[in-house]
Design a binder for these strands. Structure first.
Lengths: 227, 227
DNA sequence: CTTGACGAGTGTACGCCGTACACCTATGGT
DNA sequence: ACCATAGGTGTACGGCGTACACTCGTCAAG
């Protein structure tokens, strides 16, 4: 047992896990760009340099945060329909990313894949293989999915913001975009922001890809590029 | 004409364009994370604060850099086949991004779309519309393409690095990934790194999507989500 | 010719960042 | 009783973005 003097009620000692979880919580609360070693240390009631006993540097902290987030993704469901298995898991990954809006950028900024990401990708590859896709096809399919495997929406700009007032001259300068915005606006219903239902757009793209893959599998597609 | 004293051979004065081009060149040469206002000023033989007469702050500098890069993309070719038009333009965008490897990250980090990006997307939307896609379908198609419209590869991690030595335990821990790597390795030919031909992977995904869109167009697809 | 506004470049300074390095101190095995 | 070690501290350095006050050359108006 650990004795402790009542004099200054010593804190439970830090460890890598507490550091990582505090970092994730801080990023969730205040965003990733205001996350600094100093602010994180303050949150943990500790002097900045204390963190360096548990993570080598900030990059490794971010690595750990990425792995923690990826670890939140549900394990693959069992089932004979590979499209359902993959689809469900990717939607789980997407839910995780919606919980941690900073995570996509952090994961993308890692120079190499972290262990949890590798494990996830390996498991994903397994799902494709069990679904009957050849190793060849699985390889290209995983590249084609890219970051969408991890639930990235891959939208060009984040539509979740306040979006500001619509520029009055926009319609004149960008007529086609204006047209699309108009059609999106008047079909009402579950639209969330700017007339776009992010979840619908995500699933639309996802299903389009999965259907394409299944079609290739059925026709025995094989990579024709070779020596 | 502007007189100039021979005493200290005054420099041609800065302007926003020279600043932006120097910034792009510096990022090309040394990478985006070593690009600082101070280093850029040094490159221009000027004191750091001088830059702020031409750009409001670093974010605006990055905006300008993004726009400069997007402006390098070829204009759309004319032609009756919308898939060829769109495909060619996206491959041009990809070539631009390969020239400026930092650009994808910069563009993604802009909070909103910059004017050049808006113009590009508008023109892209026009190509889809002229190809016979409905406004509804065009809208969802553009979302489904996401950043790929601008030539982003959307790979999860950058394979262009040195890739290091293959972890000997990797095959045991990640058997499916090992299998994919093996099949990619022994089909020789134009493989560039790690057994993957980035250009092939990009076009594979691109064509899969374009074919899917064309199929939807032919069958008169329409968004079924509505009030 | 004088003047005074103005645009472009300067110099100094502030607060924040990541982190190297030396130090302290309580803990627990021998 | 000893001391190695792990965890927390304090100080300091160099780099960053940029606010603010300045200088100085140019040029139009009086």
């Amino acid at each position: 047992m650990t004795r402790q003097k009542a004099t200054h009620t010593q804190r439970t000692p830090l460890n890598r896990d507490r550091v990582l979880r505090a970092a994730v919580a801080l990023a969730d609360a205040t965003g990733i760009d205001t996350l600094s070693m100093r602010r994180l240390a303050q949150e943990l009631d500790v002097v900045p340099m204390a963190l360096y006993k548990h993570v080598a540097n900030k990059e490794e902290l971010l690595d750990g945060m990425a792995d923690a987030v990826v670890g939140e993704i549900d394990p693959p469901a069992a089932g004979p329909d590979w499209q359902r298995v993959v689809r469900g898991r990717i939607l789980s990954a997407r839910r995780v990313l919606l919980r941690h809006p900073w995570a996509a950028r952090v994961i993308e900024s890692r120079t190499g894949p972290t262990p949890a990401v590798l494990a996830y990708l390996d498991s994903m590859a397994g799902s494709f293989r069990e679904g009957g896709l050849s190793a060849d096809l699985t390889h290209h399919v995983m590249h084609a999915m890219g970051s969408r495997l991890l639930g990235f929406s891959q939208e060009l700009f984040d539509t979740s913001g306040p979006a500001g007032p619509p520029d009055p001259g926009l319609a004149a300068r960008y007529p086609h975009i204006a047209e699309l915005a108009a059609t999106a606006a008047h079909d009402g219903g579950s639209t969330v922001n700017g007339g776009c239902d992010d979840q619908f757009e995500f699933e639309f793209a996802l299903d389009l890809l999965l259907d394409g893959f299944e079609r290739l599998r059925r026709q025995g597609w094989t990579s024709t590029r070779k020596a």
